[in-house]
């Protein structure tokens, strides 16, 4: 009897394996590079500001948490602060020559390649700094009133 239930268990394992195999094949089209080293070495070429949005040590370890948290707040609640916004990272960290955070020496990509992390963010998000500077609308009537009250001061 034991033998049968063992065999049965092995069948279940097999089915699970088939499932896993299909899903990993499905996800396998990322170009992962397997490198065991977890010590990333980004190339900095910061021209704007000398500080990151959080202490460098913290950023190095937890930048994804900031971005992902901010992402959900922006998309679902319309919170559009600059600090942890992806646009903001890109605008600061883009290489002044390529204007991009990607590429062999790009800030995000170079480090991720090193750390064997693959992210899909830039298939949708632009990797270029200031990809489309928004043109601001002129101040309307309410704005004029506010300016009048506050004297245009912050």
């Amino acid at each position: 009897m034991l033998r049968k239930s063992q065999k049965f268990a092995s069948l279940l394992v097999l089915l699970a394996a088939v499932g896993l195999a299909t899903s990993s094949i499905a996800s396998g089209h990322g170009d992962e590079k397997h490198d065991n080293s977890r010590v990333p070495l980004p190339k900095h070429s910061i021209t704007k500001g000398d500080k990151c949005v959080e202490p460098t040590e913290v950023m190095r370890k937890s930048h994804m948490e900031f971005i992902l948290h901010h992402r959900d707040k922006t998309v679902h609640q319309g919170i559009r602060t600059k600090q942890h916004s992806l646009k903001n990272c890109v605008n600061c960290h883009a290489d002044p020559e390529t204007k991009s955070v990607l590429g062999k020496d790009g800030f995000c990509e170079s480090c991720h390649t090193y750390a064997a992390v693959s992210i899909d963010c830039f298939s949708c998000h632009t990797d270029k700094a200031n990809a489309s500077k928004q043109t601001m609308r002129p101040i309307d009537a309410i704005g004029q009133k506010v300016i009048a009250i506050t004297g245009g001061e912050k």
């Binding site: 601001m136 002129p138 101040i139 309307d140 704005g143 506010v146 300016i147 009250i149 912050k154």
Partner: peptide
């Protein structure tokens, strides 16, 4: 000239 966004940054004060 004050942009609309700057105007919003004044939100609290306003």
């Amino acid at each position: 000239s004050v942009s609309r966004r700057d105007f919003m940054a004044m939100g609290a004060a306003a």
